[in-house]
């Protein structure tokens, strides 16, 4: 009788423990999916400025115009054209899935970048080419989430989630910690882990409504391993923009940019 009672107690304890964990995981996935709305945008046309500060020295601001488009086969395509600084005005980066090209305005030549370049620093900033955009492939597509408590950031109560790559996911970070605001369910902070340590942290601020999405007009990436910080300030952004044309996303178009 005693043994039976004990078994039931253990079962109840196990259920409450794992049951809570399962519920926690479901909540976390749901939260993540909700915050991922910001990824589910297409035909994006934006103008933004990238500010990079390295070892305390500010570099020339980089003004760029960006176009994003998702092809019918689901391949993410992005084109970024620099307007400033003068040295690289007209220089453009084209991303088609995992492939990257750069077109130098100074020489008019188009160069293919190696596929491993996606995790490299983009334009000398703290953003990698991958951070700059994975198309509609959101965090919930690539990572599994678990709830790790709550925390206040600048007065806003946030859920803290730990994301680990889904099985078979290539080129993902070892771990992400994301903070999602409790009220608006939008990303507020993302910490990127590699080889056992947080190496950079992204702050998403100045959220403003664009269509039915709250978009962060100021995104700051601070490298924890290097003495540098990069900020993208969006000056203009439009979703489902008529300015985005499918023909932009080819190397042939790169050749025509002046």
């Amino acid at each position: 009788m005693h043994a039976k009672k004990r078994s039931i107690s253990i079962l109840i304890a196990l259920f409450t423990t794992f049951g809570a964990a399962i519920l926690g995981a479901q909540d976390a996935e749901a939260l993540l999916a909700e915050a991922d709305r910001v990824f589910r945008i297409d035909r994006v046309h934006a103008r933004s400025t990238l500010y990079v500060t390295r070892s305390g020295r500010e570099q020339a601001p980089q003004v760029m115009e960006g176009f994003e488009f998702e092809a019918r086969d689901g391949t993410a395509r992005a084109l970024s054209v620099f307007n400033s600084p003068p040295r690289v005005a007209g220089t453009a980066y084209l991303t088609v899935g995992d492939d990257l090209w750069v077109r130098f305005a100074s020489t008019g030549r188009v160069r293919k970048l190696s596929s491993s370049a996606k995790k490299n620093s983009a334009a000398g900033s703290d953003f990698s080419y991958a951070d700059m955009g994975e198309g509609s492939r959101s965090f919930s597509d690539r990572y599994e989430a678990s709830h790790d408590g709550t925390e206040r950031i600048d007065g806003a109560e946030c859920h803290r989630l730990i994301l680990t790559p889904r099985r078979g996911e290539r080129d993902a970070y070892e771990q992400l910690t994301v903070w999602i605001t409790e009220a608006e369910r939008r990303y507020r902070r993302i910490e990127y882990f590699e080889n056992g340590a947080a190496i950079k942290v992204m702050e998403l601020e100045d959220h403003r409504p664009v269509g039915d999405i709250e978009y962060p007009f100021r995104i700051t990436m601070r490298s924890l391993a290097r003495d540098s910080v990069s900020t993208i300030v969006t000056d203009f952004i439009e979703f489902d923009s008529p300015a985005v044309e499918e023909r932009f996303f080819s190397t042939a178009y790169l050749d025509t940019i002046r």
């Binding site: 390295r54 570099q59 003068p86 040295r87 305005a105 020489t107 334009a123 000398g124």
Partner: peptide
């Protein structure tokens, strides 16, 4: 010149300086 573009973008001043000298350009190209 292209290496110089990247050096200017990346803020690697010394490389940019050396490449600008060999190509006769300034930081604005």
């Amino acid at each position: 010149v292209e290496m110089g573009d990247l050096a200017v973008l990346g803020g690697t001043d010394r490389v940019a300086f050396a490449l600008n000298r060999v190509t006769g350009l300034d930081d604005d190209g």
